[in-house]
Design a protein around this nucleic acid. Structure first.
Lengths: 217, 217
DNA sequence: GAGTGGTCTAGACCACAAG
DNA sequence: TTGTGGTCTAGACCACTCA
């Protein structure tokens, strides 16, 4: 059922967690790992590529892979939910679910969440605020296999004043896709921020800068 | 010199740019692309994996890959430099280079930027602010092959009051790596934000959420 | 110079999509 | 049913690291 390379990636993550491989130390060679797990080198490379994308390990041609970080020390630079982030900032996060309903997955939903066409997906429209001030209009589409967990958590506040701004106000629009460690898409979202209220910044393995522009969406 | 799979990825990006493949249309099959470029299927998969990571195309098992976006329409959701972002927010961005010097690449520099040990890398320490208020202390290390471009742009303001806060003030710390489209690391940075001023994250193909936590660093 | 990661090939089988 | 992407194998050569 689960792909072998995902199992191996998980085992490596756990090995790093329990400090079998400590931060700064070298991972076994691809050949050794292949022998250890009884797979080909290609499969090992698929596994370590996942950890590399997560920033857990680094690599340079000719040298052993190096453990860069462990999931234990995730005190900072950890991507946070809106509420977690607000708390860290000493602000009070508010959230209201405006609407919530299942719809069959459109072509776009299916592609972004890697689901069959027509699979029921959960659409949630939320207004989120800081210290009572509405700041973010959030449209999220959840994959069917995760939506029960979402419904169980959602506090259902029937309605809310949508941001309380004119429809023509400029908004910062952000589309994003959230995935599990294994790269399985969990949700994708189309957010519109009040452009005078919030902000943010980059934090990406697959990032960009002014010198080498990238299209995020 | 350049890997074949990178060349193919570039050609595909350009093909999407000139709307040879329009948004919403299907890409040729891996087999067809392999024949067209005279390479094996594995090489084609390396190429399309890059575009997938960039969010340009999507894929589902059994169906043709779909073009999700073009680099033409990058008006929003584009990762911006600090100055670009500030301007979009209607704020005035300030920046001062506190120090700037070349040092031989340490083990960490070498791994994160995928450079040989001891290669000269450019260390830049900046203070950035919004509307005159210092907000971000930014330490950036640039790869040698990109540093000339950095030096040419940098305005050198000799010094600045470092954030104007006590050394013990809590700071939000963010480490990030910036890469080119091809995944070649350009810089990595260790930033410390004034925790009462601003900041945060999210916006990632390889993201996370509260349900499936990920270690960003 | 031996070891290692980066690249590439040419096959194979499977699960899923779509007609 | 046919085509497609996802996975996996078992080789190969090269560029680079490091002792």
């Amino acid at each position: 059922m689960t792909a072998r390379h995902e199992e191996i990636a998980d085992e490596l993550r756990r090995a790093i967690d329990r400090e079998e491989y400590t931060v700064g130390s070298r991972l076994p060679s691809e050949t050794d790992l292949a022998a250890e797990y009884g797979v080909s080198r290609g499969t090992v490379r698929q596994a370590v590529a996942a950890l590399t994308a997560e920033g857990l390990i680094g690599s340079r041609q000719g040298a052993r892979r190096v453990v860069l970080a462990s999931r234990r020390s995730q005190s900072f630079a950890e991507l946070r939910s809106f509420a977690q982030w607000a708390k860290a900032m000493g602000r009070e996060a508010t959230g209201h679910v405006v609407s919530q309903e299942y719809r069959p997955a459109t072509q776009e939903d299916a592609v972004r969440l890697q689901l069959p066409l027509g699979t029921p997906v959960l659409h949630v429209l939320r207004v989120r605020g800081l210290d009572g001030e509405p700041v973010l209009l959030e449209r999220t589409v959840y994959a069917d296999w995760i939506s029960p967990a979402v419904e169980a958590i959602e506090p259902d506040c029937p309605s809310a004043e949508l941001l309380g701004i004119r429809r023509t106000s400029p908004l910062l629009r952000v589309r994003r896709v959230t995935t599990t460690r294994e790269g399985r898409p969990v949700e994708w979202s189309d957010d519109r921020y009040r452009s005078d209220a919030v902000s943010f910044s980059v934090h990406n393995s697959i990032g960009n800068n002014a010198l080498a522009r990238k299209t995020a969406d």
